[in-house]
Design a protein around this nucleic acid. Structure first.
Lengths: 236, 236
DNA sequence: ATGAAAGCGCTAACAG
DNA sequence: CTGTTAGCGCTTTCAT
């Protein structure tokens, strides 16, 4: 629980020098560096991020907004974000909004309060209005779901192309009756997926039957099972 | 991006008074309070947690260690932790250790660095040695998996009793051939579950057949499917 | 009821 | 190469 001052005293140097050693600044003589490193070890010193963060006015914390942690769609993406974050000495705070505006506000406030340095939103149900306002003064990125021509930068895949490829693959396997279990089309990605689906069908002169397109608003296992059952009934 | 000083200036008071208003301290006259609140609104002021955290030497951040976010076992528990944390003005940082010692070290360091105020570990594979050392100076709780007679406080369910109830329920439904898909018995909870399983079988004079007890070390969907297939083959 | 001032632990500009 | 010092934004005695 020692602080930088105690390390400095024990090493017989100034706190500035301790800080230099801590931050790997090269203008420290080997001899001094060794003295400091010894003192650090002896005192079991760990630099406080609280002090450092205030001084640098950064938290090195990133918020990642998702509607639900139990949705496996996000887990791989999150792992990727986390890996890159950690290798850049950032940490991510996984925020389940559960489509609850109160939760949303809490997380938005964390950005305003400087408790987070930025937000990556993967929540399609997020309050766009508020997010856009926040983006005027804070670093925000949309991931997966985005707003066409909106003010916030985004990273996503080509949903249309991906769906097109998937459906085409199924067709080439010999399938003729291909259904689409889709999200509510108020979401851009759902509209894009339908476009890709239809494009592939058209390309192979297969009929587009709207009863083969199922929309669900709830993206959990239960509703997935329900959707699947519905579809299987139809094709019998 | 205003700071407390600017609010104080605009309101014509000292920063101490602004701080009092911020923290709902009652010894502020209504008139002054109103002046301050106006200034806060006009400047769009949000108090910086970085300053506050340093001053209070706390981060109000809790680490929750889990082996994998994709394991649905944890999601409900996490939701509960999160709800209580948020209502106490804490936030939780979900840490996927992925049984990777490097990740573990990163998270342990966050505690040492005062970046987190405490740790809730739900990771059975965690380095006990290091965790116990850390617990000497930091607030640590084990959840679900724990160490009997160990130095760290824990909260868990009675795995033996729960398994006993589950198996008894199946027996009462008329089932005779009941298998157990269990974790590696190096984990305490796995041993306890087997005890409960056997207790229920014994109570109803059903045979305990060790080929009906399946052990798996990997707790993902793939291995679950594999285990289930194995068991179903046996009972045919 | 309010203000002045110290200090939380750190980094960085400046001086030497 | 190293030390002195100011200051990040806030809370909290201690006066008044």
């Amino acid at each position: 629980m020692a602080n930088i001052q105690e390390v400095a005293d024990k090493a017989g140097v100034s706190i500035a020098t301790v800080s230099r050693v801590l931050n790997n600044i090269t203008t420290v003589s080997l001899k001094t560096r060794l003295k400091v490193e010894n003192a650090i070890k002896e005192l079991n010193y760990e630099p406080s991020m609280l002090g450092r963060n205030l001084r640098n006015s950064e938290s090195r914390l990133l918020l990642v907004l998702i509607p639900s942690i139990s949705n496996p769609f996000y887990t791989e993406i999150i792992k990727g974000i986390e890996t890159i974050a950690i290798s850049n000495h950032y940490n991510i705070l996984l925020c389940e909004t559960a489509s609850d505006p109160k939760r949303e506000d809490i997380y938005f406030n964390m950005a305003k309060n400087k408790l987070s340095d930025g937000i990556i939103s993967m929540d399609p149900t997020i309050n766009r209005q508020k997010l856009n306002e926040l983006a005027e003064h804070h670093s925000i990125i949309l991931c997966s779901e985005y707003e066409e021509g909106g003010p916030i930068p985004y990273v996503t895949i080509d949903h249309k192309l991906a769906t097109y490829h998937a459906v085409k693959h199924l067709i080439k396997l010999g399938n003729q009756k291909i259904a689409l279990i889709n999200s509510d089309e108020k979401f851009l990605y759902a509209r894009q997926r339908r476009e890709g689906y239809e494009k592939a069908l058209r390309e192979f002169d297969l009929p587009i039957r709207k009863e083969w397109i199922y929309h669900t608003e709830h993206l959990d296992f239960e509703h997935g099972i329900h959707a699947m059952r519905k579809m299987l009934q139809l094709t019998v």
